[in-house]
Design a protein around this nucleic acid. Sequence first.
DNA 1: TGTACATCAGTGAACGCGCGTTCACTGATGTAC
DNA 2: TGTACATCAGTGAACGCGCGTTCACTGATGTAC
Lengths: 205, 205
Amino acid sequence: MAKQGYHHGNLRQALIEAALRLIEQQGPQGFTLSDAAKSAGVTPAAVYRHFAGRDDLIAECARQGFAIFGDLMEHAYNDGKPTALRAFEATGRAYLAFARKFPGHYMAMFESGISLTSDPTLARAAERARGVLLRAAEELTRQLPPNRRPPAAMFAAHIWALSHGVVELFARGSPGTRSPFSPEDLLEAGIGIYLRGLGLVPADG
Amino acid sequence: MAKQGYHHGNLRQALIEAALRLIEQQGPQGFTLSDAAKSAGVTPAAVYRHFAGRDDLIAECARQGFAIFGDLMEHAYNDGKPTALRAFEATGRAYLAFARKFPGHYMAMFESGISLTSDPTLARAAERARGVLLRAAEELTRQLPPNRRPPAAMFAAHIWALSHGVVELFARGSPGTRSPFSPEDLLEAGIGIYLRGLGLVPADG
DNA sequence: TGTACATCAGTGAACGCGCGTTCACTGATGTAC
DNA sequence: TGTACATCAGTGAACGCGCGTTCACTGATGTAC
């Protein structure tokens, strides 16, 4: 943003933001380093002052995405307050809100094909985000009697998968169909039914 | 397969199969027309005898995928026999089985970014596959009293999203984590909990 | 405050590459007589 | 059965393009004296 200071001021972040905009518009594979440079008003070669190359630029987008994602999830979870249930539901909503608000980040994280294992900082950022959901699931399953308590990891995986599926199929213009329901309603209802199935929510209409 | 007959015999289908293999290995964006041609033992220019271009080749992969997908789903649904519930569960399993067995098709269908609306035959093929799941959902919700009967379209969307999420996050080597559960177990358990939440399955352990 | 120098962010030209696509062609296959 | 011809699937060379990346450079900024 700040166009002062050195030649450009903050080219590094400007490139990241340009990349995110392009990824959002054209998909992670459609975006090119040259486009990102041009969009930041700079020569392609200038990118190499700040990133090792194209892949590194995408990885940084994903890294920042996971950081924001983790923050949002943690904030929504709010240490399990006011109740474990409410906190959990808020966390689910935060997932979709993130995907909606930061589509470029989301695509860089989940659709760019970058390998989490090859970059430790990226792996750690992803791990933290996953940890929040897992903790929320653990806390919530404590309310169930042990004999009908699902593994928290499975619980969390279900919610993650449902959320991701809703994002991919119904929160984008792309491959699945338009549905008569908003992604938010769809996810909220889906999680509600699922929680009822676990016995975590009363079975009234 | 049949290398007899004309020069090649059945180059069209050979190209499709080469494309599917490449898409499976490198993703829908990573595959190139030239690779597909080479893999089929043919010059890139030969592709244009059978397809309008790269996009048309991908679209045909998706079209065949939707056809197989629809067949599999329909076969699994089996007109709702032996019971609406069993048929529905079989349909859910068929979704994952398809994604497992035909990863190239699956990626061409859901990850290639092709537009369903631009190609009527493609749209029709996709519509049919979706119709099977919707019918299964409708049939099953009839067992519920009207006042606690969710819209079948929403029901179907939930199952589709959960299935798709499981495929994308846990049935591939890629972005999410490895989970201690197999995708099959994950999906089966998830659908089970969901159905219990709807009151379609008894609440015993 | 002013001058000389060091730093280093960004330039501009160039590279090798592989892509999708075109075009005139060739030669194996199928057909008519 | 044999010959002449028509068809058309696949060839091979070429194209224009845009990509990611490199390199020697330049000139604005920061610093020492």
